[in-house]
Design a protein around this nucleic acid. Structure first.
Ligand code: FES
Ligand code: FES
Lengths: 142, 142
DNA sequence: CATATTCCTATAGACTTTATAGGAACAAAG
DNA sequence: CTTTGTTCCTATAAAGTCTATAGGAATATG
């Protein structure tokens, strides 16, 4: 959910012409307001969005949507992509139940899976998401 | 963990010449005994293994290891492969926060991810896992 | 009957998920 | 300088999932 909400928020922001307050994003994305607030904070920490406080404040993308990668966002919100920690590049952690990591068949298999997954996810931008929407004036994304 | 343990158990069984009691599998796979017991029950329900009760009982693969697919096992143990339920073939469930599923950009993107993932996982058998192990007499898989 | 094993049910601690609540800090407008 | 609309921060909490452990009934073998 959290990840999905984050991506939805980014798509909404990418489609918006100006900055938006979290309340407005929540409405468009159909996401619980206060929950989204927390997610936006994480996205900000991650460098995907910027924000302005006070009246008429709001959030906007920190970079062009083509440069915000889905894989990057998922890692920031959900953590590792790999099915097992020993196969993760960014969140590596040794497996308790394996003594010879170099020959571990599970790890080898999951490395392949991770590669496939990260290739796909790191090659997919928020712009790409936007482009998947059928062209129409009243933009409905979901 | 559960999924990993399940795959490990299957690899152990695939490498074994005869049926094995859960205790022995647990030792080889370095997995908690009682936990593994529960997992083996699930694998049996799923049709991947068979078992014999009583003294000198044990577990064995129900089919040749080349016909036991990793994707199938993961679905049985972990549930859906897809990142979102609306993109799952076997565990489909509508998203509360989306009203127009047909045009949902998140869903479209996640369908692609799911396809990539299931292609990989459904094309990978327990035999394939076994083959990833470097050839040596004392078989150490992890 | 003794032993080895699967199978079944219940329990439990720790953690994660999915939020909600309340209010402090901040900025702009009147 | 007060009102209003925001972000930002902290705390709380219900429900669910994960990772096991415990105890014993049912079953098969010798
Ligand atoms: S080393 Fe991680 S699964 Fe074996
Ligand atoms: S329909 Fe499932 S994410 Fe939109």
């Amino acid at each position: 959910m959290k990840c999905k909400y984050a991506l939805k928020a980014l798509v909404v922001l990418a489609a918006a012409e100006d900055k938006m307050p979290s309340k407005a994003i929540a409405k468009k994305a159909k996401v619980p307001e206060k929950f989204l607030e927390a997610i936006l904070t994480e996205l900000k920490k991650n460098g995907a969005i910027t924000s302005e406080r006070g009246a008429f404040g709001g959030h906007r993308l920190a970079k062009p949507p083509a440069k915000i990668m889905v894989g990057h966002i998922i890692r920031a919100i959900d953590g590792m992509l790999a099915p097992v920690s020993c196969a993760s590049t960014f969140y590596y952690k040794k497996c308790r139940d394996c003594t010879h990591e170099e020959v571990c068949v599970i790890r080898h298999a999951m490395l392949e899976v991770r590669n496939q997954l990260s290739d796909k996810l790191d090659g997919m931008s928020v712009q790409n998401l936007l482009d998947m929407s059928p062209k129409q004036k009243q933009k409905i994304f979901w």
